[in-house]
Write a protein that binds this DNA or RNA. Structure first.
Length: 293
DNA sequence: TACCAGGTAAAAA
DNA sequence: TTTTTACATGGT
């Protein structure tokens, strides 16, 4: 059994971060004491478990039953929990806003949890286009159960190779539209052929990422921002035209009614360079608030 | 039943 | 160039 320690930047609350993630996919209650996820490391399925050494401690315990390199485990876990992000500058900015400040204090140490790979994130973005998160979740699980791999009771998201080979009909059978089936096929093939290197996006600026993502068929402005904030954890990225964002920013930072994308952009200016994190906190607040709706 | 939900590309105007 | 339409599922 491989075990390693991971030090994260700034304040971190793993239990809260897990709770936040669960709030976006309502279902049976999930374990919030540890992050358990199956990933592929150097091509091999590995069960990864991440725990917080002590409450809100900066040290995380990363372990796996499999004999993966501790360094690779640490790297993968650090990616998923956004270990490099320091929330303190965000909290300082939040202090200037009467609405965000109490929310930031309530959720002290909360970070987004990233999907294990950018390919998974890209496919998720396509699945979630236009339909409700509930519907998207159902479709997503059909895709995983049809094309993914199961290890230690957990599913690993299908590889680009598998989804590149999948027929439009098979994908449609999961509940995707024919269009979305083509998009997913397309991005998977780009990755397999090597014309798209998703991991390379990690080294590029937000604008360079926007340019590359929106050049892929099926990926527009919304998907580029969505992948930036959720997949890459870029703290300033916001899909301002996103329906939920327009609704929530309007509700909490505006007059209560849904905003236009332009109004969202204007309203979020004070939170640069943490606009995406500010919106993340608002969305979670809305989902966890007892007086929701 | 109709409409909305964390959009996008392609057709039509 | 700008506006409209088709698309799939799930909840209300």
């Amino acid at each position: 059994m491989a075990t390693t320690q991971l030090t994260v930047q700034g304040p971190y609350d793993l239990a809260l971060s897990l709770k936040a993630r669960a709030s976006f996919s309502p279902g049976p209650a999930e374990d919030t004491t540890a992050l358990r996820i199956a990933v592929r490391i150097d091509g091999k399925p590995v069960l990864l478990e991440v725990q917080q050494a002590a409450n809100k401690s900066a040290v995380l315990q990363v372990s796996s039953l499999d004999d993966a390199h501790p360094e690779r485990l640490q790297e993968q876990a650090g990616w998923i929990v956004l270990a490099d992000l320091d929330l303190r500058p965000f909290y300082r900015i939040a202090e200037n806003d009467p609405i965000i400040d109490p929310v930031a204090r309530l959720f002290h140490g909360m970070k987004p949890i990233r999907p294990a790979t950018l390919f998974e994130m890209a496919v998720d973005a396509v699945i979630e286009q236009q339909i409700s998160l509930t519907a998207a979740r159902r479709i997503r699980s059909r895709v995983i159960e049809r094309f993914g791999e199961r290890t230690a009771g957990l599913w690993i998201f299908p590889d680009p190779e598998t989804l590149a080979r999948a027929s439009t009909e098979e994908l449609r059978a999961c509940g995707l539209s024919g269009r979305k089936a083509e998009y997913i096929n397309g991005v998977a093939r780009n990755v397999v052929e090597g014309s798209l290197d998703l991991d390379q996006l990690k080294n590029l600026s937000d604008n360079e990422v926007r340019s590359i993502i929106s050049g892929i068929r099926g990926f527009g402005r919304w998907s580029a921002e969505y992948i930036l904030i959720r997949g890459l954890g870029r703290p300033d990225a916001v899909p301002a035209d996103d329906l939920a964002v327009r609704t929530m920013v309007g509700k909490y930072l505006g007059d209560g009614s849904r905003m236009t994308a332009e109004q969202v952009e204007q309203t979020l200016k004070p939170f640069v360079p943490f606009r995406g994190i500010a919106v993340f906190y608002l969305l979670v607040y809305h989902r966890l608030a007892p007086d929701r709706k």
